[in-house]
Design a protein around this nucleic acid. Structure first.
Lengths: 292, 292
DNA sequence: CTCGATTGATGAGATTATTTCATCATTCTG
DNA sequence: CAGAATGATGAAATAATCTCATCAATCGAG
């Protein structure tokens, strides 16, 4: 037995809360602000509490209203996306893609011309974002993730392993501190990515180096920043060789030791489980599988 | 601008789909089956596709209907839980707890009498389940998780570190294969938990043992099964010393080497972020923090 | 084998929910 | 300062939802 509040009132509340305005909600829903006011009142009576605090000509959400809005928005996002997927045109040639900023600038954008040449009538809408997506609630079609591939409830397709090599500015090679053998790293600054300290630990272990601390360390919040810091000569970072190939070729970065860390992580193409692929998604998947 | 289907029709669809019956849905919703039939028809017309396939006196969900039900259920679960939280009695003395089966039988149940003595008017409703919960959609109040504590969007409170020691049946000590030094493990079966192979790898590394393979290995799907397999004399498992203290005391299990693996994992008490705690939740939290 | 019960479909009409309209109070802006 | 704008509220109009009646087709108990 399910207990749900009056759903039409909820729909009106969500709009009013999102706009912080009954008038704006009325416009969005094609009803008068009076209808909005009545529906909100109905919902507040049902719940036995206030969702808005009224102040002169404006309304503000109460803390309860804020909490409720968060959940109701989530729920309506899911309904909206599910409805959209059900009614979506399988022939669509537009694909919404989400990738990490680092991947976008270093790998995808340099190859965009090739994709467009091969698939001239497929249109990519690309969003740069970190972290995982909730495919129940996003309109994004596909994403490129990196990690161990163990994500539940989504379709995960292996693209390519991540192979990390140390990279630094050529300035560091010309500096007064030597950088000729892995042991020399002890006298340099190691650049880590937050939550991925193990990368350097594992690389050093694999290289047969066993030391407790380097001269110093620098912790960055993302791989992109870590690589940028290396380019600035701030120290040595570990980076995926494919993502930094352009910088290596141009001489902005050098690889002091060609020792690759074979991580258990890789790039993966992901999308919602059990989702039939549109023409655009099929094209993008096919291209990613062959290009990487 | 949000696009939602007719929500009352959706509510009726969800009930009919969940029951696989218009008649049952009518009973649940206190309307006639005719109303259900009309509402489902309205929704199918809106979507432009069928959600049910009709066959004589019964209905079955179409694949589209199944997909839609999954999402709509999720969404309604969230609305229902959010509404419940908003209207919940903060004075409630009933707490719904979810813990792993291993933790329940080995740690919580043996201490239940103590909890009830200390908090006689608090009622625990305990559910044993594996994996993480979605606190947006569950009515469970609190859970005990183990892991690295890095879970986003929930309130995480450290309880106690997990310290793993090797355990086995006393039979193994009396067997013909010696088990006196960690190196002797090479001739025994190591019992792993799926996805946690690193536990043995790290323990061996910490013990100064460096061998590539043992005589064999046995992979179990849960810690509970791994410990049970050890009790059966099938090999050596790694187990948390607190969880197995009763078996160790009773002699069902022995600790061949008192070398504890200091993992980065621990037990944590978790609940929904920003949720005001009921009296029952406060009591349970207080007790867990002091008891562990 | 038959008849009553059961399930779902459908159209017409009844009922209820939702909305508009009218009015009010209060503020804000040109 | 006057008109515009926002939200509240009650009465009445409108639209959505539901019941009722009927139908078709099956199933199960006697």
């Amino acid at each position: 037995m399910r207990h749900l509040p009056p759903l039409n009132a909820l729909r009106v509340f969500e709009s009013a809360a999102r706009h912080r305005s009954f008038a704006a909600a009325g416009k969005e829903l094609f009803v008068t602000s009076s209808a909005v006011s009545h529906q909100v009142k109905t919902l507040e009576e049902y719940l036995g509490l206030s969702l808005f605090s009224r102040s002169k000509r404006t309304v503000a959400l109460t803390p309860a209203g804020e909490q409720y809005l968060t959940s109701v928005r989530h729920a309506f996002d899911e309904i909206e996306m599910a409805t959209q997927r059900l009614t979506a045109n399988q022939e669509s040639k537009v694909v919404k893609i989400s990738v990490a900023p680092n991947f976008l600038t270093r790998w995808l954008m340099p190859r965009m011309a090739r994709f467009q040449a091969l698939y001239p009538d497929i249109e990519l809408e690309i969003n740069a974002s970190m972290g995982l997506l909730d495919f129940d609630r996003t309109s994004t079609d596909m994403a490129v993730y990196f990690g161990n591939g163990e994500w539940d409830d989504i379709e995960v397709h292996f693209l390519r392993k991540i192979m990390l090599v140390p990279v630094c500015s050529p300035q560091l090679l010309e500096g007064e501190l030597p950088l000729e053998k892995p042991e020399d790293l002890a006298k340099h600054t190691l650049i880590y990515v937050r939550k991925r300290k193990w990368e350097w630990e594992n690389w050093l272990h694999q290289s047969g180096v066993d030391f407790i601390s380097a001269r110093g360390s620098l912790q960055m919040s993302s791989g992109q920043l870590a690589t940028a810091a290396a380019e600035e000569g701030l120290g040595v970072a570990l980076a995926d060789s494919t993502l930094t190939s352009r910088e290596i070729k141009s001489g902005k970065l050098v690889v002091p030791f060609d020792i690759q860390l074979d991580t258990n992580r890789a790039f993966y193409l992901v999308y919602r489980k059990q989702r039939p692929l549109t023409i655009g998604m099929k094209a993008f998947k096919e291209w990613m599988m062959s290009e990487m």
